[in-house]
Amino acid sequence: MPIDAASNADLRMRVIREIEGGIPLEPHPYRVIGERLEVSESDVLEVIRHLAGEGAIRRYGIVVRHHELGFRANGMVVWDVPDNRVDEIGRLFGEQRFVTLCYQRPRKLPDWRYNLFTMVHGCEKNAVRENVRVLENLLEGPGFPHEILFSARRFKQRGARYAVAPRLESVTVRGARETPRSEMP
């Protein structure tokens, strides 16, 4: 029976579940996935091409861990910038090479005043602070209130799981002596 792989929502979700944790490091990764799902290699590839084509996949390739590469410090820098300038400033910050995330988020007054979030990486904390100064210097004028939230313990880190009915997993909390870790977007 021929199947229209790209429009088959169930197959799509099953393929997402197979690939979200990474494709097999085997010569024919999609054949391996196809065998698990009892569909052809071409069906698997067609679903993935379709996801990429509709913009659901931001990038496709090798995903590295910053911390293990020596970028041991990361600071989530939160900024209180005027609402009418947040797009302009967000785009400017998002272009900087040491910034790996740049999002507008809602303020939650009175508890939370910050509306722009950037993830800034560096080999150690001072390198992160220096990069934050680079960001400040990109802007004219007196500057905007901001704070750097350095990461301490990493309790959990993995790619987002979108597939429904996620597999159960056992996760242990790391010890209190854990060194700071960085995170992947």
């Binding site: 979200e20 990474g22 990038r59 496709y60 995903v63 992947m184």
Partner: peptide, 12 residues
């Protein structure tokens, strides 16, 4: 553990 995985990063 330098490479986390090979595959997609989904659009938020």
């Amino acid at each position: 553990r330098i490479v986390s995985r090979v595959g997609p990063v989904f659009t938020p």
